[in-house]
């Protein structure tokens, strides 16, 4: 039994900055410098009305409300703290392999003290391999893949999100790739991170995202003959109303959504 934690300095890097999502102008990075962003961000949806009424009249008075929902957009340098170091190392290592970083890395987002690289899907395996093997990067632990379905983000509907942890350097980054619904293919990372075997099967099971090169991409949670992919946004929850003390409580997907 030993406690050998000397190699984990309690240095959270840019994570220990304060709350920073109250608006783009307040986004200070680790050096205290503002990190400018594209004003637009990634528009994922345009919302109309207030209470999620999609058919029929809206009598709330909020029917004319139109709001654009955008995820945080690309950040410009400096990213702050060790983020720049990781970005530099990654770009340098990719260049050494004859791959132009701007082709592989579509954009870099720094938000809420987290670093996200948006990777072009055809270069995902190469980037992951570099992140794992380069001694200065050494992201040896992949915590799996999480799918996200943005139904209205045309051409980029399906996102696969990977979180990579470096135990050596005590860092965490995020990789994000997207694929259109019409061509739901993303290369598999099982060859680089074998732990992704079940994670990719799970994401396939729930989102229909096909991981090319996976050794056995079959359903893992749902029955083998299940039709459809339950976590997609166009797949209904299928709730049933419940009677409670004589009143009908509508199913969760039939209630007001206060969107």
């Amino acid at each position: 039994m030993s406690d050998a934690h000397d190699k984990h300095p309690n240095d959270k890097g840019p994570n220990d900055q304060g709350p920073n999502d109250k608006g783009a102008d307040k986004n200070l990075n680790g050096n205290g410098l503002p990190a400018p962003r594209d004003a637009a961000g990634e528009v994922i949806r345009v919302r109309k009305g207030m209470f999620g009424a999609e058919n029929g009249g809206d009598t709330t008075g909020y029917g004319g409300l139109v709001r654009t929902i955008a995820l945080p957009g690309a950040s410009a340098r400096p990213y702050g703290g060790w983020f720049d170091e990781v970005a530099d190392e990654l770009e340098g290592a990719l260049e050494e392999q004859g791959l132009l970083p701007e082709n592989a890395i579509e954009k870099t987002v720094v938000d809420r003290g987290e670093l996200t690289f948006h990777i072009a899907r055809e270069h995902l395996v190469r980037v992951a391999q570099t992140l794992r093997d380069d001694p200065a990067l050494r992201f040896e632990l992949c915590t799996g893949v999480s799918g996200v379905h943005f139904l209205e983000d045309k051409g980029r509907e399906l996102h696969a999100v990977y979180h990579l942890r470096s135990i050596t350097h005590n860092r965490l980054i995020r990789l994000e790739v997207s694929a259109p619904d019409a061509d739901p293919h993303v290369p598999s990372l099982v060859s680089v991170y074998p732990t992704n075997d079940w994670h990719e099967r799970e994401t396939y099971d729930f989102f229909g995202l096909i991981f090319d090169g996976h050794p056995a991409l079959t359903r893992i949670m749902m029955p083998d003959d299940w039709q459809g992919f339950p976590q997609r946004k166009d797949y209904p929850l299928g709730g049933i109303p419940v009677e409670y003390k004589g009143a009908q409580i509508p199913a969760p997907d039939q209630r007001r959504s206060y969107s």
């Binding site: 999502d21 915590t143 999100v161």
Partner: peptide, 15 residues
């Protein structure tokens, strides 16, 4: 209680 609070758009990972 019925509507809940709004959370600014974005993503986060905690462990």
């Amino acid at each position: 209680v019925t509507e809940g609070f709004r959370v600014p758009a974005g993503q986060a990972y905690t462990a």
